[in-house]
């Protein structure tokens, strides 16, 4: 099936690792991703003030764009997913806001575009069994922490992605790749989000808790689908090691990077040079 693909700013401009591993794994899995023409930045955060209609416009236009293409809209970044899906939920369920938003649009939009995360597409079109059959390099023995963070899961009523407290989609994905999905109690904890720029202390305490938790459980690598989670968890690790707060570095990977390696695609599509903690030494052990 063919989908409208929404890369979002971070995949487009910065995170070649997430982008290239996505494009190449989709091709390998025969999931057709056609980039949405003339897409706009989704806004990165869903506006939480009730009167803030303007901030919803860019995400609405993306939804309209996918409707014009007559395709479901697929995204990778957890923040894009959160904003696009919540905007669509609002348009579907709030007649007053729908009307207000429509007054800015060239044509009427009713909320009929379906917003999907790439993981949902894999589950739907390939299936966990199907994925297992496509694995060329089994990841047996690799202990992986599934890390969901916030934006994929909550608020549950609007996103309806998985259980808000005990999600399992990453676990199923990991089992198909042959990895050991470790029971990770911090899998739905917040990494501190964008507050690292202004209130660094928020990030420091959140990240330390998550990484120490990973150390205690003997986790080899941690996977995510959020560029900001990856950045926050990855970038401070040298300091934490130096200060003695963290005993062992924890490589952080996009789930698509692990998928690319399992599907036997070249390591070049993963761009591990973008990471501070290079996952390759750990991954070599099992390859």
């Amino acid at each position: 099936m063919e989908y409208s693909y929404f890369p979002g700013c971070t995949l487009h401009n910065q995170s070649q690792s997430f982008r290239d591993s996505t494009i190449s794994t989709a091709r390998e899995l025969k999931i057709e991703l056609e980039e949405l023409p003339d897409w706009y930045c989704c806004g990165a955060v869903y506006p939480l003030r009730s009167e803030d209609i303007m901030s919803l416009l860019s995400s609405t236009r993306n939804l309209v764009g996918a409707k014009k293409e007559d395709k479901d809209l697929v995204t990778l970044c957890s923040a894009c997913y959160q904003v696009l899906k919540r905007t669509n939920y609002l348009i579907l369920n709030d007649a007053e806001k729908r009307e207000k938003l429509n007054s800015f649009l060239e044509e009427k939009y009713d909320g009929s575009t379906k917003v999907l995360h790439f993981l949902e597409v894999i589950r739907k079109d390939v299936g966990w069994e199907g994925l297992k059959n496509k694995v060329k390099t089994s990841m047996t023995g690799l202990r992986v922490a599934p890390y969901y963070g916030c934006l994929l899961l909550r608020p549950h009523k609007e996103l309806a992605f998985d259980h808000p407290e005990n999600p399992t989609i990453f676990e199923n994905f990991l089992k198909s790749l042959g990895c050991e999905a470790v029971d990770f109690p911090y899998k739905t904890e917040c990494c501190g989000a964008y507050l690292g720029i202004t209130e660094e202390i928020v990030i420091n305490s959140a990240v330390l808790k998550i990484l120490q938790g990973a150390n205690k459980r003997g986790i080899d690598v941690l996977i995510t689908s959020c560029p900001l989670c990856l950045y926050n968890l990855d970038v401070g690790q040298n300091e934490l090691m130096k200060s003695g707060n963290l005993l062992k570095p924890v490589p952080i990977l996009y789930f698509t990077q692990l998928l690319a390696l399992a599907l036997g695609l070249g390591v070049e599509v993963c761009h591990f040079e973008e990471h501070l903690i290079n996952p390759l030494p750990t991954l070599e052990r099992i390859r």
């Binding site: 971070t10 910065q14 990165a44 923040a79 964008y194 900001l228």
Partner: peptide, 29 residues
């Protein structure tokens, strides 16, 4: 109060941090 001033960002942070974080901060602050 608590307005965000983008001029306070170091070049290193600007280069490395995901756009997602900058746009978020812009929207929130």
């Amino acid at each position: 109060v608590h307005l965000f001033d983008p001029n306070t960002l170091s070049d290193e942070v600007k280069d490395k941090i995901p756009q997602q974080a900058l746009v978020s901060l812009w929207r929130k602050r």
